[in-house]
Structure formats: C-alpha cells, structure tokens
C-alpha cells in the first residue's frame, strides 16, 4: 500500500479529467493521438493499481472512471472504436488482477456491451443528423429553384401570349406562329399548375389526388376552358383518374361530333357532400333518337360508357342536348366513395 502514490494517481485523474473536458469541447481537437493518449492514461492507471494498492486489491485505482475514455472512443470511432477500447480496458483490468470473481466478470461484461452499443447509437445519430441536413438543403434548393422557375415561366408566358396576340393581328404565316405560341402557352400554364399541385399535396397520402388540379390539366387541350373552385379537391386517386378520363371522353366526343376547332367548357364544383362536373359545348347537339338507335343496334355508344363509368362511382351522369349545344352534368356523392 502506497498512499503517496495513490494520491498522485488521483491528482493525475483530476488533472486529466480537466484536460480532456477542454480538449474534447472542440471537434477540431478530437484527434486520434489525443484519444490514444486518453486511453493510454486510463490503461496506465489500471496497470498501476497492483503497485499502488497491493497485489490483492478489490477495486482498481480508476474504478468506473475508465468509462470516460471508453465512451470517448465509442463516440468518435463508433462501434468499432467502442469495441476496441472496451476490449483493451476490460483485458487490462483482468490481467492486473491476481484473482477474478463474479463482480469482475459482471463489470467486464457490461464494459464489452457498453462500448459497441454506445458507438452504434452515435453512428446512427450522426447519420440521421447528416441526412436531415441533406434533406433541409435539398428542400431549400427546391424552393429556390421553384422561385426562379416561376420568374422564368412568367416571362415566357408573357412572351408567348404576346406572340399569339400579334400573330393573330398580322395574319398569314404569323397567325400560324401565333397559334403555336398559344398552344405552348396553355401547355406551360398547365404544367405550372400541376407542379403546384404536386408540391402542395406531396405530404398527403399517395392514395389521394386533387381533382381540381387533374381537371385543370385538361385545360391544355386547345379550345378547352376549365373552371375550378381554386382550392384542392381531394378524392381517392383512383376516383380522380376515373373522373378525369370520363371528362376527357366527353371532350373527345366534342372534337368528333362538333369539330376540332369547337370550344368546350369544364366546370368543377365542390360541395361538402358531392362534386359536380359540367362539360359543355355549343355544337348542334345530338339529334333526337340517335342514342336510342345506337343502343337498339347493340352498340355501346360513348354516352353509354360515360353513364356507366359514373354510375360505377356511385354517381349520376345526365345529358342535356338541343340547339344550344350539349352539356354533360356529372354528380358524384362523396359518401359513395
């Protein structure tokens, strides 16, 4: 038993604790050589235990203080570092003892468990922090891109609209150019709207779609005007797809029966209990008896298919036709979905 040596060891531990606290505070100072030195000090104190306390000591001089170096290694070098440090500390601890009892065995076991697990947790945490930073940067970059794109899109829309307008006034080939510019203007405007819809609904479930945005895309067709409530109209994605394809079929019908240059109007209204869609054209209307004649011949006309598909969704499709044109009224109650 050497009390003076013991006091010296305690002084070393106090001083080293202070040094380590200061050194580890700055990430730039967490160098391999310092971590190595930290571990060496710990191992040195373990080795000194039999000299200071005599051959058959119970607790080593540093005691649970050995955890500090071990945890530092686990934090810095993850599970590999934690494992290495815990093996070295536990091994040295066992080597310097003249006999090993159950308590020593238990402590060794805890050391070997703690090192790798703490290391593993640190690695996961650091990875998550990195991924979060990456996601935040990506979101910021995306928002900035969208802002720039809006400015560019607005400029392009302005120019396309101007070309369309001047072209129509000049006539001849310029009129064709103007018409092309007009088509592209509509395509671009539709793209912008659908992008807005994607970014605003990306957080909601995948099974839900925005009927207003989806119908709005049909506005890219020439001579088609789409009016929506201006808010998101959320419905199951499958229902949105079906309704859009039904409306598209109505619009195809307009092109076939009235002409490619015929105007058509789509109106979507959202009520708390139902959605209503109207598709209207100003063609000559469907001659009386033609639908019945088609049905009698066993042909499933487009009209039949439109009615059938809306009925499958639990809704109703009504057709009114006359010299004022043709209008489809589709009503789908929400509780049926």
């Amino acid at each position: 038993m050497r009390p003076a040596a013991g006091a010296f060891c305690v002084l070393v531990m106090v001083l080293w604790t202070g040094t380590a606290l200061v050194a580890y505070a700055d990430p730039a100072r967490r160098r391999p050589w310092f971590l190595g030195l930290d571990l060496l000090v710990t191992l040195g104190l373990l080795v000194a235990s039999p000299i200071v306390k005599g051959e058959s000591f119970n607790a080593t001089v540093p005691g649970f203080w050995v955890m500090c170096a071990l945890l530092a290694w686990a934090v810095r070098y993850h599970w590999q570092g934690g494992l290495l440090a815990s093996v070295l500390v536990a091994g040295t601890d066992l080597l310097v003892r003249d006999e090993i009892n159950q308590t020593n065995y238990g402590n060794t076991f805890l050391l070997l468990i703690a090192g790798p697990i703490v290391g593993f947790m640190c690695e996961s945490l650091q990875m998550m922090a990195k991924e979060r930073d990456k996601a935040q940067r990506a979101a910021l970059a995306e928002a900035e891109r969208a802002r720039l794109a809006r400015a560019v899109h607005d400029g392009v829309l302005q120019v396309l609209a101007l070309v369309q307008r001047r072209g129509a006034e000049l006539g001849g080939e310029a009129a064709d150019l103007g018409r092309l510019a007009g088509e592209q203007e509509q395509v671009l405007r539709t793209l912008i709207r659908s992008q807005d819809a994607v970014s605003s609904s990306s957080e909601s479930a995948h099974a839900v779609g925005d009927l207003a945005a989806a119908l709005g895309e049909l506005g890219a067709r020439p001579h088609v005007s789409v009016a929506t409530p201006g808010t998101v109209v959320e419905l199951p994605a499958a229902v949105v797809r079906e309704l859009v394809s039904v409306v598209a079929a109505c619009l195809d019908n307009v092109v076939v029966h009235v002409g490619a240059a015929a105007s058509a109007w789509v109106l979507l209204e959202a009520f708390p209990d139902r959605v209503e869609i109207s598709v209207r054209d100003e063609g000559p209307g469907i001659p009386a008896g033609r639908l019945e004649a088609a049905a009698a011949e066993g042909r499933l006309g487009v009209s039949e298919s439109i009615c059938g598909r809306v009925t499958d969704l639990g809704g109703t499709a009504e057709l009114s036709t006359g010299p004022f044109g043709t209008e489809w009224e589709l009503v789908v109650p929400l509780e049926a979905l």
Partner: peptide, 20 residues
C-alpha cells in the same frame, strides 16, 4: 369575367356558406 374567374368566385361563396 372569364369562366375561370366565375368558377373561383363560385367556389369562394361555397366555402363561405359551408356550415362548418
């Protein structure tokens, strides 16, 4: 008015008259 604007105004009144 354009048809699109009429649709927006209609939607706005529907929202305002929503009992909730």
């Amino acid at each position: 008015f354009t048809p699109g604007l009429a649709g927006l105004v209609l939607g706005e009144f529907r929202r305002l008259s929503d009992p909730s």
